[in-house]
Design a protein around this nucleic acid. Structure first.
Lengths: 334, 334
DNA sequence: CGGTATCATGTTATCGATAACAATTCGGCG
DNA sequence: CGCCGAATTGTTATCGATAACATGATACCG
C-alpha cells in the first residue's frame, strides 16, 4: 500500500517501455493485440489506476466542464444538471459544479476557483455577473455558455428563455380570465436577479394591460420556497382577500401560498387565483393543480450539451443564441 | 489569446525566479513583503491564473473530495451535498460529484472514474456496493465514508441512520393509533437498496406487531416521486379503501398518494392514514401535513465534514461510526 | 570588525503520462 | 537473398508548480 502503481511499474512488469503501456491502455491501434492484452492483464493484476491528473497536466486538457448553478436544491436546476452530467459523461467529460447561492459575488469567487482547474468550457446560470467575472472569463480563450436566460450582452453562447416574456404570458392569462388586482409573491429585493427580472416582467405586463399597481409581497431573502410562501400568507391572514390573483415567483412558493390560503378559508380559484413558475412536479400533483410556466429544464441541459459538442468538434464559429422558449400550463388555480 | 501565463512568465516580468513567485503567491512568510506585493501586482497585471492541475500533479494532492449520490434531484441529498460543499469549501476542498441513479453498477463505474482524479477522500451514499467497488476502494489507501446508512460491514467510516429502525417507528405509531391493514408504496423491487431496506423494515415491524401481511403497491422503477405516487393510487381507485394506512417510501410519494386519495373522495386521515419519509418541505406545508420521519440530511453533511477534517488532521485512527438518528414527526395524515 | 544566526532568494529535480520523432522488426516480393 | 514499406516498440523532452537543498544578503553580537 506504499507507493502508487504507475505506468512505469506496469511497463517494467511486462518488460516494455511505458510508452507502449500508455498506448495499450488507450487502445491505440498501433500496438499489437497480444501486447495490449498482456499489458491490460498485468495492469489489472498490479491494481494499476490511471492518473487523470498527470494526463490533464501533460495534455493540457482537464476533461472538466465547469458549471455554476444558483443552487442544486431546486428541482429545475437539478434537472438541468442531470442532463448535463449524462450528456457530457458520454463524451468522457466530468462536471465541476459550484453553487452560487443566488449571489453574483459568490459566483465570481467560484469562477475564479473553477478556472484554476483548467476546464474545457464554462457554463454559467443566468446573464448577470460582476464586472470582474466578465473580465476573468473573457481574458481566457474558453468556450462560455450562459443558460436559463437570454442576456442582452452575452459573454459567449446562450441557451435560455426570457423570464419577462414568461411572466407576461401569466399576466395575460390572468387578465383574460378577469383578474385585475395582482400581487407578486417573491424574494426580497436583493441579490437574486432571476427573481427581480420576473417581478419586473409582471409589473411591465400589468402596466401594458392598464391594471392597478401590482402589490409586492415579500417572502424573505432568496431562495424562497414552500414554507416561505406559506408563512407570508399566514402572516397576512384575511388581508390577502383584497387581491384576486397571486403571481408567485416559483411553483414551490405558489404551493405554499395555496395551502395557507386554503387554511384561511378562501377558495382557489374562486376567491383568489394563484400562479407559479417552473412546472415543478408539485404543480402537477397538487390539488388543485397550479397554473404555471413550463421552462423545460432538461431541454436546456440537452441543448447545452449539443452546443458544447459542436464547439469541441470545431463546428461552431459564431456565438450561438438558443431560445428554448417557455409555455403557459393552465392548471386549476386560475 | 495565445499561450497561457505561467509562474515563469510572472517571474521573468518581476526579474526573479519562479520559486519566489510561487512562494509569494502562496503567502509563504519567508518572502519579503515588498517582493510579495510586487509579485502579486505583476501577476494580476499579466492576468496570471494559478494552475491547480500542475499543483495537484506535483504535490500529489488533488484538493478533491469525491462524492457519489443516488441523485441530486432529491431535496434531502441536495441538502447533504450543500452542507458538504460549504463545509469542505472552507477547507479549500472541491467536491467531485457523481450520480449513481440508484444503481450500484453505475456507482462502480463512477468510483472507477473518480479514483483516477486522485481524490483525497471518497464519500459514498449507502452501504450497498458491488464487490468490485469494494476492491477498488480498499486497494487504495484513501479515507472512505459511507453515509445515509449504517452498514454492517462498512468500508471505512460511517455517518448515517438505520432505515429499518425509522420505518419501525412509523409502524409503531400507526399501530398505536389503531391501524392494522398496511400497504407499502414504493419502487419496484430492483436496484434501489435504500427503498428495499425501508420496505423490509416495514414488513419486519408489522410482523413484530402481529399485523396482517403488508400489501405492496408498486409505483414503478426507482426513483419514484410525487407523480408516481399519484398515478398508482389513481389507477387503483376505490380499491385503496381496503387498507387503513399507506406507508410510503418517501414524502413526495406520500404527497402524490395524498392528493389522489383525496380526489377519489376518501378522507385523510379518517378513512386512510398516510405516512412519508424524509421530512421534505412538502410534508410540512401540505394540507393536511404529512406524518414523516426526519432524517436530518444537513446534519449528515456536517458530520461528514467534521469527520473528514479530523481525518485530514490525523486525529482519527479508528473507523468512526456515527448514528445521526431519525425522529418521527407526527403530522395530520395519521 | 569578524563571525554567526537570520532572512531572502535561487537551483535542481521531480510528480506521471504522452507527443514527436527514432529505431527496430517483420513479411513479402523481385 | 537482399531490399522496402508497414507494423510495432523505444527514446527524449515536456506540461507548471514546488520540495529540498544551496546560496547570497543582512543584521546582530561580543
Amino acid at each position: 500500500m506504499g507507493a502508487r502503481v504507475t505506468m512505469r511499474d506496469v511497463a517494467q512488469a511486462v518488460g516494455m517501455s511505458p510508452m507502449t503501456v500508455s498506448r495499450a491502455l488507450r487502445d491505440d491501434r498501433t500496438v499489437n493485440d497480444k501486447t495490449r492484452a498482456r499489458v491490460r492483464q498485468v495492469a489489472d493484476d498490479l491494481g494499476y489506476v490511471y492518473d487523470s491528473t498527470a494526463q490533464a497536466f501533460r495534455t493540457q486538457k482537464s476533461g472538466f466542464v465547469a458549471v455554476t448553478l444558483p443552487s442544486v436544491n431546486n428541482a429545475n436546476f437539478a434537472e438541468t444538471f442531470r442532463a448535463l452530467t449524462n450528456g457530457l459523461g458520454e463524451a468522457g467529460l466530468q462536471l465541476l459544479l459550484g453553487s452560487t447561492n443566488y449571489r453574483v459575488e459568490r459566483e465570481e469567487e467560484l469562477v475564479r476557483q473553477l478556472l484554476t482547474r483548467n476546464p474545457e468550457a464554462l457554463v454559467l446560470t443566468g446573464g448577470h455577473h460582476t464586472e470582474e467575472t466578465r473580465k476573468l472569463v473573457q481574458a481566457r480563450d474558453l468556450p462560455v455558455i450562459e443558460m436559463w436566460d437570454l442576456p442582452e450582452d452575452p459573454l459567449g453562447h446562450v441557451v435560455g428563455f426570457s423570464n419577462s416574456d414568461a411572466m407576461a404570458h401569466i399576466v395575460e392569462h390572468l387578465v383574460a380570465t378577469g383578474r385585475r388586482k395582482l400581487a407578486f409573491v417573491g424574494a426580497s429585493e436583493g441579490a437574486d436577479m432571476r427573481g427581480a427580472v420576473r417581478r419586473a416582467g409582471v409589473v411591465a405586463a400589468a402596466q401594458a394591460h392598464d391594471l392597478p399597481e401590482v402589490a409586492m409581497i415579500d417572502a424573505g431573502p432568496a431562495p424562497v420556497s414552500m414554507r416561505h410562501g406559506a408563512a407570508v400568507i399566514e402572516a397576512m391572514g384575511k388581508d390577502i382577500a383584497q387581491y384576486d390573483a397571486l403571481v408567485c415567483v416559483s411553483d414551490p412558493v405558489a404551493f405554499g401560498c395555496l395551502n395557507s390560503v386554503q387554511r384561511i378559508g378562501l377558495r382557489v380559484p374562486e376567491d383568489l387565483a394563484i400562479t407559479g413558475f417552473g412546472h415543478f412536479e408539485v404543480a402537477k400533483v397538487s390539488n388543485p393543480r397550479i397554473t404555471t410556466v413550463n421552462v423545460q429544464a432538461e431541454d436546456i441541459g440537452r441543448q447545452v450539451v449539443e452546443l458544447l459538442q459542436g464547439i469541441f468538434d470545431d463546428e461552431i464559429d459564431t456565438p450561438a443564441r438558443i431560445d428554448v422558449g417557455s409555455a403557459l400550463v393552465v392548471g386549476e388555480t386560475s
